[in-house]
Design a protein around this nucleic acid. Sequence first.
RNA 1: GGAGAGAUGGCUGAGUGGUCGAAAGCUGGUGACUCGAAAUCACUUGUGGGUUUAUAGCUCACCGGGGGUUCGAAUCCCCCUCUCUCCGCCA
Length: 421
Amino acid sequence: MISIELIRKNPDYVKENLSKRDQILSYKIDDILQLDEERRQKIKNLEELRAVRNAKSKEIGLFKKQGQDTSLLEEEIRNLKDQISELEDVVARIERYMNDLILRIPNLIHESVPFGVNEHDNIEIKRYRDIPKFDFEIKDHSDLCVSRGFIDFDKASEISGGRFSILRGPLAKLERALTNFMLDINMKNGYEEISPPHLVKDIALIGTGQLPKFKEELYFIQEDGLYLIPTAEVPLVNVYRDSILKEDELPIYLTAYTPCYRREAGSHGKDIKGLIRQHQFDKVELVKITHPDSSYDELEKLLNNAEEILQLLELPYRVMVLCSGDIGFSASKTYDIEVWIPSQDKYREISSCSNCEDFQARRANIRFKDETGKNRFVHTLNGSSLAVGRTLVAIVENYQTKDGKIRIPKVLKEYIKEEYI
RNA sequence: GGAGAGAUGGCUGAGUGGUCGAAAGCUGGUGACUCGAAAUCACUUGUGGGUUUAUAGCUCACCGGGGGUUCGAAUCCCCCUCUCUCCGCCA
C-alpha cells in the first residue's frame, strides 16, 4: 500500500501520480485524508482518557498498600470507562474502513513510466531476433499438437471444463524439460530454488496485492479458507513477511516453479483456443527482495535474466515498457516480454517483470535494519522466468516443420535426447 | 480425528492481579583497557501509533489472535489459530 504519511504530507503529488492510472483515484485519496484526520483526532482524545485512567489506577495500587480507602478513585475511573470503550470502538471502526480503502489503492508509478490509457500505449524498447519465415502453410500450436496426439482438449474439458488441457507424451516431457531448464539457468544466476505451498491464506494475498481487490480472479476453498495461488510470487514474497532483515542479507533472489490457478473472470471469449489462456498453467517465477536504493538496477537485471531464457531458446521476442494505464496494481514499473507467435502473426506476453518498490513490503511488513539502525521497508520485485505454457506454444509454433514435427531447441538437448518430436 | 503440553523481546528463558515493556543469559551497539585484537569491565540494545521542527521529550498500545472479568491483566475466564508429543488415518 501507499504510505499514509506520504498521502498526508503530499496529497497533491499522490493524486497527480495516481491520476495517470485512473482519474477517479484522487477522490479516494480525499476520503482517506478525511478519515485520517478524524482518526488522529479521536486517538488523541482516547489517549488522554487512557492516560488519566492509568495514572489513577496506579494511585489505587499505592493507596491500597497503605491501607487507605480508594472507593472514590474507583468511582472516578468507572465514569471514564464508558467514554474510553466508546472511543475505542469509533477508532477501530475508522481504522477498519480506512484500511479497506487504502488496500484498494494501487501503487504509485515510477517517473520513467510513460503515460498511456491502455495496452496500445505501451512502448517497445527492444526487439530480439528476426521473426521466422516459413516456406509452407503453418499450423497453430493447438491444431498441430492435437493432430499429433500431444494435447487432448476434449478429454480435459470433460474432466475439468473449459480452459484446461491434457498434455501427453513428448509434449508433457517438453514441458518438464522447460521447467528444469529455466530453474537451472536461474540457479546459475544466483537464485535460490524454493518449493512453496500452492494454497495460501488471505493475508498472503493481501501482502502481494491480489486481495482485497481481485478476489474474483482467485480459486477459493471455502471449507479451509484457503486460496490457490495465481502465481508463485505470492508464497515467495511472503517467505519474508513480518521480518526485519539485516542489510547485508539483501538482495535476496528466489525462484520457484509452481502451477498457477486463475479463474480468468472477465476473459470470456479471449484466447478460447489452445494453451494461451488456461485456468491452470505452469510458471517459473523470479522474486527479489532488495535494498530500496538498488531496486531499479535489480529490475534491469531481472529482465535480463528472463530474456536470457528466450535468447537461449532462440525465440524472437520484444520488450515493452507498460504505460501508466496498463501497469498492474502492485507495480511501480513493469516490463513485459512478448514472444513471437507465428499463427497469430503477433507478439504475445510471456513474461512480466515488475518493481513493486515498497508497496508489497508495507502490506507484508518486510523490513530491513539500515546502517543507522532504523527499520525501513525493502523493495520487492517479481518476474516470470517465463510462463511455461506459453513458452511451449512459442516453441511448437516457431520450431514446427513442414511435416508437422517440432524441432527441439539446442539448449534442451540435455533434457530431451531427440532432435524432433 | 482422539488425548495431552505449549505460544513472552533478534534468540534462550523467568514472570499467576499493581512501580512489568517485562528478570537473567546470549546476540547486537557504544566506551574503557590494548600498538591492534581476543578476553575482561562499564553502559546500552523491542515494535507500532499520537503529539512535535525533532532520530529530544511527553504519551498510548503491543507478552500468538479475538472477546470478557477488574479501578488495574503477560498473569484470571471464554473462543480461535498455530506448534510439539502420543494414538488413529494416510501420499
